[in-house]
Write a protein that binds this DNA or RNA. Structure first.
Lengths: 149, 149
DNA sequence: TTGACTGCAAAAACTTTGCAACGTC
DNA sequence: GACGTTGCAAAGTTTTTGCAGTCAA
């Protein structure tokens, strides 16, 4: 693993483009990796490693959990996959082209996904005040939704 | 555990006030609970359950890890203790009167604590735009600090 | 005296690692 | 053919649970 830790997201649109990105970085386009990418393409929301290995309830073939973790990590360092924590429970993963950011309600656990632009002035305010570049894709904004407040 | 899940923070200033809050809610002021509260008073930063049970390097007596977890949970439902996640690693705990909120840099893992008022207009913006009451004490704002950006 | 609470032990939940066999380049 | 990668098993880390005994009210 000689790949730099932080990379710009690569915006994967298809299995093919992801496999190409792997090969361009000197890694192999193995069957196990194909499966992880297919699962993430099939899921329309962030999913756990366990769920990917389980085949997303039949949407893709089941696979080995340890390999799934290893490949999520590998794909992450390439910038193809992003790791998220929405509340408790296991870590979740999504393709990096899903550029949404998240608000989670700590009252009812509802997750609201918003497009990146919608948080730009929140980001601007934080940058101006603290010199801090905030991102809400890995860690969401936590709080209370309208109903729970 | 018949206590409501969400409560206003109780602002514990001393061991005595915390024990009083326990008794007023029909719970017992046991030695194990005293120890957890003493540890949190002694720590000047969020600490893990493991570290509390370990006695904070001699600052307080060691105690049983399972009981520490149980009591952190209990004190949490009373609003005396808050549970935080700053990055990876174990969950952290602090007294609820430590009302600071956090920014964590995902580049260098630096944690910056800020006073609650400093994020009020970020909060106002989020409330206006999304009807969402954000809080950054349980989950911090993640991003990149000035040096890492 | 009563039953909430404890400490210990065991297990559950999540993730990582070691290693021989395998499959991609 | 070389070696990156896999699948299985085992272990690591963090948190929860069961239970008989203990202690606060």
């Amino acid at each position: 693993m000689t790949v730099a830790h932080t990379r710009p997201a690569l915006h994967v649109k298809s299995l093919g483009s992801a496999l190409r990105a792997l090969r361009e970085n000197g890694m192999r386009a193995s069957a196990a990796r194909r499966l992880v990418i297919e699962a993430l393409l099939a899921a329309d929301e962030p999913v756990s490693a366990e769920r990917i290995a389980g085949g997303l309830d039949g949407a893709v073939p089941r696979s080995d959990l340890a390999s799934v973790y290893r490949n999520l990590e590998t794909l992450g360092t390439l910038g193809l996959v992003r790791h998220l924590h929405l509340g408790h429970g296991p870590g979740l993963y999504e393709l990096a082209d899903g550029d949404r950011e998240f608000l989670v309600c700590e009252g009812c656990d509802a997750i609201r996904a918003v497009d990146p632009g919608e948080l730009d002035d929140v980001r601007a305010l934080l940058r101006e005040r603290f010199g801090f570049r905030a991102g809400f894709a890995h860690l969401p904004i936590a709080g209370l939704c309208e109903e729970c407040a």
